[in-house]
Design a protein around this nucleic acid. Structure first.
Lengths: 119, 119
DNA sequence: GAAACGTATTAGAATCTGCTTGTATAAGCT
DNA sequence: AGCTTATACAAGCAGATTCTAATACGTTTC
C-alpha cells in the first residue's frame, strides 16, 4: 500500500499544482508504525514512562498498582511494548523485571525535548 | 487516571519486590499521546512522511493520488495531523499547501536515527 | 451567474482496540 | 503434594477508529 502508487501516475486528471512526492520504504514504515502504535495508548505510554523513570528494572506487580487496569491488561500492554522493541524483560525468580530499550529512551527524550521547546 | 494512584498505596498485599515508580505529568502525557496517535496510523504516517520529504509545501491533490484512500479520508487525515501540531497549512487560491512542523521533523528524524542504528 | 474544480464536513458501516473475566502455567512455600 | 503468588493467554464484548459516499463550501473560469 506504500511503495507503488496504485493510482495511475499519468492519470487524465487536471492536477497541475505540484509534482508527486517520493515513495517511502515499506519496512521502515512498518517498524515506525509498530513503535508509534505501541506507545500511542494511555496505558502503554504510562507503563513505558514508569519503566523508563525507574531505569533499573521494575516488576509488573508494582506497575499494576499504578495504572488502574487489571493485571491481565498490564500484562498484555507489556507484551506489546516488548514486541515493539521498547522494553526488555528479564525473569528473576517468579518476578519479571522490565527495562526500557534505547529506542524507548530516544523517543521519550525527543518527546520531552519537544515539550520543553514548546515546538 | 495518571496522577494519583487509585489503588491503596498501603494495601495489605504481599508485594515486596520493589517500590512504586513515580507519577507523571498529566498534560505532558496528553500532548505526547496526541502526537503519537496522530502519527500512529498508516495513512497519516505516510502523508506526514511525504509532506516532510517534499519540505516546501505539498498540496492535497497530489497526496491523494499517493496514499490510495479517498479524498475525504486524506482530508480527515490531514486535519488530524494539523490539530496535533504536526503540519502547518496555508491556503493559496483554491489549493491548500501543507508543511511539516519542527515537531514532526524532530520525531521523524528520531525514528530514522533509530532505524539507522538498529537500536 | 453557472459550471468545474479543490477541499472540508457529515453520517454511517466495517473494522480494530483495549478492556474484563476466566483460566493456565510456573515458581516458591509449607 | 497442595496452596499461594506472579504472570501470561484466550475469548468476548463495548467503545473507538477509519474508511466510503454523499454533500457542502469556497475559488476560479467561462
Amino acid at each position: 500500500m506504500i511503495e507503488g502508487t496504485t493510482a495511475d501516475e499519468t492519470a487524465e486528471g487536471t492536477h497541475t499544482c505540484c509534482e508527486s512526492p517520493g515513495d517511502i520504504d515499506t519496512d521502515a514504515v512498518a517498524t515506525d508504525l509498530r513503535l508509534l502504535t505501541a506507545m500511542g495508548n494511555d496505558t502503554r505510554y504510562e507503563l513505558l514512562r514508569r519503566i523508563a523513570n525507574a531505569g533499573d528494572g521494575v516488576c509488573v506487580c508494582d506497575l499494576e498498582a499504578a495504572v488502574g487496569v487489571s493485571q491481565s491488561a498490564v500484562s498484555q500492554a507489556l507484551s506489546r511494548l516488548y514486541s515493539a522493541g521498547l522494553v526488555t524483560r528479564r525473569k528473576e525468580g517468579s518476578w519479571r523485571y522490565y527495562e526500557p530499550t534505547e529506542t524507548a529512551a530516544a523517543l521519550l527524550e525527543t518527546l520531552d525535548d519537544l515539550r520543553g521547546s514548546r515546538a
